[in-house]
């Protein structure tokens, strides 16, 4: 087989771990948020990821843009303490409206520091 091994895989839009690895290699403090469960009309399935840095970089998503801000706040805390957190946002939860999960879905997000 005449394969051109010079070709490196182009990064898919879902390769958030690759982005996190690059940031970490560049010396950034990194947190990774992962959808671990979703219900109803939540737009992003379990396994969806977002990577964030202490310096404010952000790639990927854990919702349609509704809870990313709140997750980013939690991620800053996780990057400080090193302790993972599970955040749950849902239509029955008043905080969901506060952060704007208007889709009527419910989502649980694991936030881990990359160490």
């Amino acid at each position: 087989m005449n394969t051109d091994d010079r070709a490196l895989p182009v990064r898919g839009a879902e390769d958030i771990l690759g982005i996190a690895a690059d940031w970490c290699a560049a010396g950034e403090t990194v947190a990774i948020a992962t959808v671990i469960q979703s219900w109803g009309s939540s737009p992003r399935p379990a396994g969806s990821r977002m990577a964030l840095t202490k310096t404010g970089k952000m790639e990927g998503s854990v919702s349609g843009g509704c809870i990313e801000g709140a997750v980013a706040d939690a991620a800053l805390e996780v990057m400080d303490t090193g302790t993972a957190q599970v955040l749950t946002y849902g239509v029955t939860d008043e905080s969901a409206w506060a952060v704007g999960l208007a889709c009527g879905g419910q989502v649980s997000v694991l936030v881990e520091k990359l160490t």
């Binding site: 087989m1 005449n2 394969t3 051109d4 010079r6 070709a7 490196l8 895989p9 182009v10």
Partner: peptide, 13 residues
């Protein structure tokens, strides 16, 4: 030609 397909695996078999 690799330059036509940046980043994609090419097989000329």
């Amino acid at each position: 030609a690799p330059e036509r397909f940046p980043g994609v695996r090419i097989d000329t078999a």
